[in-house]
Design a protein around this nucleic acid. Structure first.
Lengths: 206, 206
DNA sequence: TGCAATTTTAATAGTACTATTAAATAAACA
DNA sequence: TGTTTATTTAATAGTACTATTAAAATTGCA
């Protein structure tokens, strides 16, 4: 592999693969191209990862872990429910801003390769159940106080996810449609962040 | 082509292609497979459509037209603004319910093949501008009345689209994650329809 | 019926991709 | 240094796919 880097070859390959998968998805990315971007022979990709599938799994698992752990992260205790919701949306938004192409990759691959679902399933099962139960009970308290309207934790999480995910899923379309520069688009993103949080918080109202 | 149908061959091919594209996307669908599903020789696919790309464009344009025209459809005049919003969300939801895989196909292809964007762009340009202006002025009236909070037509449309699109984009994931039967999933969908409309209407509040 | 146009097929050229293998090179180490 | 181990490459087997072509089958119609 290239001598101008002290990274281990497998990491260089992994990074090249990651970028290409994020750009074009699994099907349209070839190991030949990954090798070219990584600056090595195509056989080396297979030497380290055996199959293109395993290489993809490595990328997929990395980000699945990152997203899931962020989503189920417990917020501080000594803040209001509204503030907790705000922070949850905020954290998700920032994670997406740093990894804007991940939703595309996930939806694409989960839709085309149902087998990948089971991989995600086992990863999510334990952690999410605990988190959702906790949230459910907090919501129940708020409802009984009359602070928010009747709803479930699933309802709320789905709203938060929908608003934030779709922004980044549609980013490439929006950029072209609105003929925006990258900085103009950053502004739109920030505006929409505020709008998303507004919608989420208003949606709680009794 | 199969003799047990009186459909023209090109329509049978188009329908087969449509189903496969919706199931697996452009890249993972081969003309060989399309032919097999259509019950004809693979060369016939190329005889009628010349390239796989053109065949895809036919499917893409059909649904782009359907979705765009539904989205910019003017609602009746003699109903309240809130009712207009409700009906817009309602119509979109029903369209998605009838064509649940279209969002996946669109996002997938617009993300992987940026060239397709220009095709969509010209289709959308004229009609959407007029619709959005109309909506913008109606919103302005409501804001001045103090009936709704300050917001733009883009804000509102984005909220409506986010909530409804993501439900169907994530359907395959949800089905597996929640281990649901098809009928149980239909229930979830209908519940979420109500929830979406609730969120949208609450988000208008001053 | 017989001819012309259309539709369908078999065969295949050409390309690209995944994965493997065996050989070459470099690193580790005693 | 010499030998073992790990890394990298060139070569290639094997497969699948798009698109074309020429011939066969079918259809429409004079």
């Amino acid at each position: 592999m290239k001598q101008d880097t002290n990274n281990a070859a497998d990491l260089v390959i992994l990074e090249a693969a990651e970028n290409l998968f994020l750009e074009k998805g699994f099907a349209l990315t070839s190991t030949t191209e990954i090798a070219k971007v990584a600056g090595c022979n195509q056989a080396l990709v297979h030497y380290y990862f055996r199959t293109k599938e395993r290489l993809f799994d490595a990328v997929f698992e990395k980000y699945a872990g990152l997203f899931i752990s962020t989503l189920v992260q417990k917020t501080e205790d000594d803040i209001s429910f509204e503030e907790k919701v705000r922070r949850k949306a905020d954290t998700l938004f920032d994670l997406l801003k740093t990894n804007p192409r991940i939703p595309f990759l996930f939806f694409n691959e989960l839709n085309t390769n149902p087998g990948r679902l089971s991989l995600l399933e086992e990863k999510i099962a334990g952690v999410s159940a605990a988190f959702m139960l906790q949230m459910e009970s907090e919501i129940q308290v708020e409802i009984e106080k009359g602070a928010i309207r009747p709803m479930t934790a699933t309802d709320l999480m789905f709203t938060i996810l929908s608003l934030n995910l779709l922004l980044f899923l549609s980013a490439p379309v929006l950029k072209v449609m609105l003929g925006m520069s990258d900085t103009a688009f950053q502004h739109l993103i920030e505006n929409r962040k505020r709008e998303n949080i507004t919608v989420i918080l208003k949606s709680l109202r009794p």
